[in-house]
Amino acid sequence: MTSAPPVRLLLGPQRPTRNIAESIEAAGLANGSFATISAGWQEAENDIDDLREIVTRPLLDLRLYARAEEVFQADENLAAMYRARQNRLKAQQRLYRLRLRHLAMAARQTIRADGDAVMVAAEKRHAIAQLRALDRHHLQRTGSIHRPFIEQFNVDSSPLLAQHHREIGEIIDECGAVLITGGNIVVLLNRMLLFGVDRLLADRHIVAWSAGAMVLTERIVLFHDRGPQGRRDSEVLGAGCGLIPGCIFFPDAEHRLREGERSRIELMFRRFSPDTCVTLDSGAALQFAGSEVATVNEVGRLNRDGGIGKLRAA
């Protein structure tokens, strides 16, 4: 257990700029092993040799992806229920996307609309409010899909999950901090929740990048404006672990986000307010001490005027 407020060190992608070692050093994290969560890499979860070289600390692999596969093999009922939940979540996301497409388009067009300023402002507010209501609804719906599964299969009621939870906790106890890599955000989140890892992290120092940072927030937002199909409206995926409240992280924004499109940025700012929309590009480092931003290096934030400014420490 740590006595001071736990350090949360959040980074951008570790390519091309690898700033993890220097950021850990600057954060003053004590020497010691790091418990590593790389479940977002899926089958490549244990390819952490490269990481060992960069971090220069001993890494203990928590093997969340592999553990989950073992659990699915051992408990067919759990595996079936898990798959059914994922299918429901995907169906929910598709329904949300259907509605989002039209509401987001309407909001963007309203933001750009000409005419009587007072009249346009009222419509703009309402269009954005509708979007926010849809996001809230979706967050509530995804929560209600998660709930029955969690009630049936959790580390308190399932001996199998409890055993893994205990083992994971013991490894984390041995370590000075927990390291969470990027990767597939859905896989990462689900595997962490399955083994109740979120509960084990509350008072731990955490170093995380990209998807690893996103998973720690209260609300995870998916985004990519430069996929093969071009721009796409950002989507709320659902709730994260909730360890970093008040922030939504946008890793690799310089490549994934069309930063010059001010009406889109403004819409995101207003849609997700009061949360701060934080960009984490490669080379960025953001350190929280408890809930306070302690240090900031090359971290951006989306602004109300549609621009991207620098995030500053409190």
Partner: peptide, 18 residues
């Protein structure tokens, strides 16, 4: 092919943040 396939079957790029 890229436009057609990625539209009909979008990949996990959207979900992956390395």
């Amino acid at each position: 092919l890229r436009n057609g396939l990625s539209w009909l079957y979008p990949g996990p790029l959207w979900l992956v943040y390395e």
